[in-house]
């Protein structure tokens, strides 16, 4: 992403923000409340049209005019508010918008049983979360279970190239947060690129390859985890350090998947 800008009415939520993600890496985005992190990923996933700037994937310029378009490009996201529907079951939420279908007498119908089975598998085995009764409505689930359902939504996608997690551990207790981070750790290292927004620097330093700091709608700086400190990142977040022009991330050795 290059030079992304976005305003809501008179509020400049994003101003000339660049973002580069390499294949197989985990890029963390940090920044104060209201810095524009969620807005940036909503632009990347086609929820908000940007006022300016460009997006490219594998070096090719792409347009992401809708959420559907981003899914088709292999860009998927677990949003901060989880984006679940309370009165659907966990499997129905997991597959919402990507239902498995089968043909019965030439008519295409939803394969509810198949979705139920796969969703239970992903939730139980890959995420280690048991729901008890898998057919209960999502509003009955705990915060951690809901988070797991939202993450499972991304895991069942066939061809996710870029996975975005907006504060995946914010609603979780320590035990559930730990498990979610383990899942992220396991996903990492396949050729999927991951963007994780988080306020918890210890998680960021544990998992990320690079850290991108946003401040008041702008890019405050990008650092490689191996070459930075918590103090420096905090400085960028609060604005006591600023290097808007310098961008350590752009000189990465591997070709960018998305920029």
């Amino acid at each position: 992403m290059r030079g992304i800008s976005k305003h809501f009415g008179g509020l400049q939520a994003l101003k000339d923000v660049d973002l580069t993600l390499h294949a197989g890496e985990l890029l963390a985005i940090v920044g104060d409340n209201g810095a524009g992190k969620s807005t940036l990923i909503k632009v990347l996933t086609g929820v908000y049209p940007p006022d300016g700037g460009s997006i490219s994937l594998d070096g090719q310029p792409v347009r992401v005019p809708s959420r559907r378009a981003s899914i088709d490009l292999g860009i998927d996201a677990v949003y901060q508010n989880l984006a679940l529907v309370d009165y659907l079951t966990a499997p129905e939420n997991v597959y919402l918008g990507n239902e498995i279908k089968r043909s019965v007498l030439g008519i295409t119908v939803l394969d509810n049983r198949g979705m139920r089975k796969n969703a239970a598998e992903v939730l139980n085995e890959r995420l280690g979360v048991a729901l008890g009764n898998i057919d209960q409505m999502t509003f009955n689930l705990s915060g951690g279970q809901r988070q797991a359902v939202a993450i499972a939504r991304a895991l069942i996608q066939q061809k996710v190239r870029i996975l975005i997690l907006d504060e995946p551990t914010a609603a979780l207790g320590p035990e559930e947060a730990r498990r979610t981070l383990e899942v992220v750790q396991r996903l990492k290292g396949k050729d999927m690129g991951i963007i994780m927004i988080s306020h918890q620097l210890e998680h960021v330093f544990e998992l990320a390859d690079r850290i991108m700091v946003m401040r008041r709608g702008r890019l405050a700086g990008v650092r490689t985890v191996a070459q930075t400190t918590r103090q420096e990142i905090l400085g960028l977040i609060v604005g006591s350090i600023s290097d808007y022009e310098a961008d350590g991330g752009r000189s990465g050795a591997s070709a960018p998947v998305a920029s």
């Binding site: 809708s66 959420r67 529907v85 309370d86 009165y87 659907l88 919402l96």
Partner: peptide
């Protein structure tokens, strides 16, 4: 039918799931 439930239940979630 499924999308009607999603749209009526939480329009924003439906949209974020890529539903038109």
């Amino acid at each position: 039918g499924r999308y009607a439930i999603a749209i009526g239940g939480n329009r924003e979630s439906a949209m974020l799931a890529g539903i038109n």
